[in-house]
Amino acid sequence: MPDAVAHRFQIGDRVKVREAYPIGHVRTPYYVRGKCGVIERVCGAFPNPEELAYAREGRPAQPLYRVRFLQRELWTDYAGQPVDVVEVEIYQHWLEAEGPQP
């Protein structure tokens, strides 16, 4: 088994977080599920925490990204400025490719 899954996304790619609600230890916050953002950086590959939490190896390691979301895409009634963002670390198996911004 390879040590790490190959990474699929590059800086600047638009991605969508899977809207899924599996049980167990998951490190994808609820507030970004189903939301679109842009890859800010590729952080490397890390053992999958959803496996590590249950004393498994978490291999092959999952690529980890920092994804930048516009606050206004996360909260429809966001009261700050349009330029405000949140950046969240998300593992590749939670991300899908998304077309360019409409």
Binding site: Q81, V86, V88, E89
Partner: peptide, 8 residues
């Protein structure tokens, strides 16, 4: 404002 959520 750039908020960094340290999730992983």
């Amino acid at each position: 404002i750039r908020v960094h959520d340290s999730t992983a």
